Amino acid sequence: MANGTPPTKQSEAEIKLTFDMRKLWIDHTIWTRGFIVSNLAGLEDQKKVLERLLQNQVDIGNAIKPYYGKDAGNKLTELLKEHILIAGNIIDAAKKGDQANLEKYNKEWYRNADDITNFLTSANPNWSKKELTDLLYMHLKLTTDEVVARIHKDWDADIRAFDVGENHIIKMADALTAGIVKQFPKKFE
Rank of each mutant, 00 (worst) to 15 (best):
W109R: 13
D92W: 06
I84R: 14
E51C: 03
R150T: 01
T121C: 05
D156E: 10
E78R: 10
T121R: 04
L54N: 07
I91F: 11
E51I: 05
G73D: 02
A72G: 13
D156R: 07
K47N: 13
A149H: 00
G69A: 08
D156P: 02
Q55A: 09
L50G: 06
K153Q: 15
A161W: 00
N124L: 11
A113H: 04
N106F: 09
K47S: 15
V148H: 04
L135I: 05
K95I: 03
E166K: 15
N126T: 06
D98E: 12
I90A: 08
K65G: 00
W109F: 13
M172F: 12
P66I: 00
G61M: 01
T144M: 03
V164F: 00
T133M: 11
E78H: 08
A113I: 10
E78N: 13
E131F: 05
L85H: 09
V147A: 07
A63H: 04
V148D: 05
A63E: 08
I170A: 03
K141D: 02
D59W: 02
K141A: 08
G73Q: 05
I116V: 15
I84P: 09
H168A: 09
N112F: 05
L102Q: 08
I90M: 14
T144P: 00
K153H: 09
G88L: 06
A161Y: 00
N62K: 10
M172D: 06
K48Q: 13
E78C: 04
R150K: 07
A113E: 01
L54W: 05
Y137C: 02
A100K: 15
I64W: 04
L85N: 09
L140E: 12
A161Q: 00
A123H: 02
T121D: 01
R111W: 05
H139E: 11
N62Y: 00
G88W: 00
A100Q: 15
K96Q: 14
E103H: 07
A123G: 06
T121M: 01
N118V: 06
K141I: 02
R160L: 10
T121F: 01
F162L: 14
Q99Y: 10
D115H: 09
P66M: 00
D134W: 01
Q99P: 02
D163P: 01
V148T: 10
G88E: 14
Y110W: 11
Y105F: 15
N126M: 07
L140Y: 09
Q57G: 03
N167R: 08
N167M: 03
H168V: 07
L136W: 06
K47D: 13
E146H: 05
Q46L: 01
G61S: 02
V148K: 05
R111V: 12
F162V: 06
A63F: 06
I91E: 12
W127G: 09
D59E: 11
K75C: 06
K96V: 08
E103D: 15
K81S: 11
T121H: 02
M172H: 14
N112G: 12
D115T: 03
N126Q: 08
K81F: 02
M138E: 03
N101E: 12
P66A: 01
L142A: 11
G97V: 10
K171E: 14
I151F: 03
A123D: 00
L140F: 11
H139S: 14
K48F: 04
I169A: 07
G88V: 01
I159E: 00
